[in-house]
Amino acid sequence: PPDDERKKAEKAARSGNEEKAREILERLGYSEDEARELAKRLR
């Protein structure tokens, strides 16, 4: 489910793995720019 994926992205971002967070968010349908912004904010 998307919620689980989003949680994974948050966890990745918090542990400093912004790249992985961005990949997950892009898979969820965010654009590259949106995903980058979100990954930064989740950190």
Rank of each mutant, 00 (worst) to 15 (best):
E5P: 09
E32N: 07
R14N: 05
A21F: 08
E26H: 09
R6D: 03
L25H: 00
A13Q: 03
K8L: 13
E23H: 10
P1M: 13
R22Y: 05
R27Q: 10
L42Y: 15
A35Y: 03
S31E: 03
Y30D: 00
A9V: 05
R43Y: 15
S31D: 05
E19T: 12
E37F: 11
E34Y: 07
R27E: 04
K11R: 15
E34R: 06
R41P: 00
E5Y: 09
A13E: 03
D33K: 11
E18K: 02
R14V: 08
Y30M: 08
K11I: 15
E37Q: 12
R6P: 03
R27D: 03
E10H: 09
L42H: 02
K8W: 11
D33A: 14
E37G: 05
E18Y: 14
K7T: 13
E23Y: 08
A13P: 03
E18D: 07
E5H: 06
E10D: 04
D4W: 12
K40P: 00
A39V: 14
K11F: 11
E32K: 13
Y30K: 01
S31K: 05
R22L: 06
E19S: 10
R43E: 03
E37W: 15
E37V: 12
E26R: 15
P2Y: 14
Y30P: 01
D33P: 07
D4N: 10
K7E: 11
R41F: 10
K11C: 14
R41T: 05
E37L: 13
R36M: 07
R14A: 09
E26D: 01
L25V: 00
G29V: 01
P2R: 13
G16R: 04
D33V: 08
A12D: 03
D4E: 14
R36N: 04
P2K: 12
S31Q: 04
S15I: 07
P1K: 13
R41V: 05
A39M: 08
K8D: 10
E32I: 10
E34V: 06
L28E: 01
E26S: 08
G29Y: 00
S31N: 08
G16I: 04
G29M: 01
R43K: 09
E32H: 11
E5L: 15
R22G: 01
E32G: 06
K20W: 11
L28H: 02
I24E: 02
R27V: 03
S31V: 00
E23D: 07
R22K: 06
L28D: 01
E18V: 14
R22A: 07
G29F: 02
E37A: 14
E32V: 11
K11P: 02
A35D: 01
D4T: 13
N17I: 04
N17Y: 08
G16V: 03
E10I: 15
E23Q: 13
R36Y: 08
S31L: 02
E37H: 10
K11Q: 14
D4S: 13
R27Y: 06
K11D: 15
Y30R: 01
K40A: 12
L25P: 00
K20M: 13
D3Y: 11
E18L: 15
R36W: 08
A39D: 00
I24T: 01
L28A: 07
E37P: 00
D33M: 09
K7L: 13
R22D: 00
E26P: 00
R14L: 09
L25E: 01
S15P: 02
L38Y: 08
L42D: 01
P2C: 14
E19Y: 09
R41M: 10
N17E: 08
A9L: 05
K7G: 09
A21E: 02
R36P: 00
D3T: 11
K8Y: 08
R27G: 10
P2V: 13
K20Q: 10
P2S: 11
A12G: 04
S15V: 07
P1V: 12
S15M: 14
K7Y: 10
E19W: 11
K7A: 12
D4M: 11
D4A: 12
E18S: 05
E26Y: 06
R6G: 04
R41W: 10
E26A: 08
Y30V: 02
E5I: 07
R27H: 07
A9T: 04
K7S: 11
K40L: 09
A21G: 03
K40R: 15
R43A: 14
S31A: 05
D33F: 09
E23P: 02
A9K: 02
D33Y: 10
R41N: 06
K11S: 11
L25R: 00
A35W: 03
R14S: 06
E10V: 14
R14G: 03
A39F: 07
A13F: 06
S15N: 12
I24M: 06
E34T: 05
K20G: 08
E5G: 08
K40N: 09
R14D: 03
A21M: 06
A35P: 00
S31F: 02
P1E: 13
E19C: 14
D33I: 10
S15L: 11
L38M: 12
L25W: 08
P2L: 13
E18Q: 07
E19P: 07
P1L: 14
P1S: 14
E10N: 05
L42A: 04
R22P: 01
R6T: 07
E37R: 14
D4F: 11
L42E: 00
A35I: 06
E23M: 11
R43L: 10
E26T: 11
A39K: 00
D3P: 10
K7V: 11
E10Y: 15
E18W: 14
A35R: 01
E37N: 09
E5K: 06
K40T: 08
R6L: 15
L38D: 00
D4Y: 11
R43T: 07
P2F: 14
K8T: 09
D33T: 10
E5W: 15
R22F: 04
A9Q: 02
L28C: 09
E19H: 08
K40D: 05
A39E: 01
L42W: 15
E34C: 10
A21H: 03
K40M: 14
R14Y: 08
E34K: 05
R36H: 04
E19K: 13
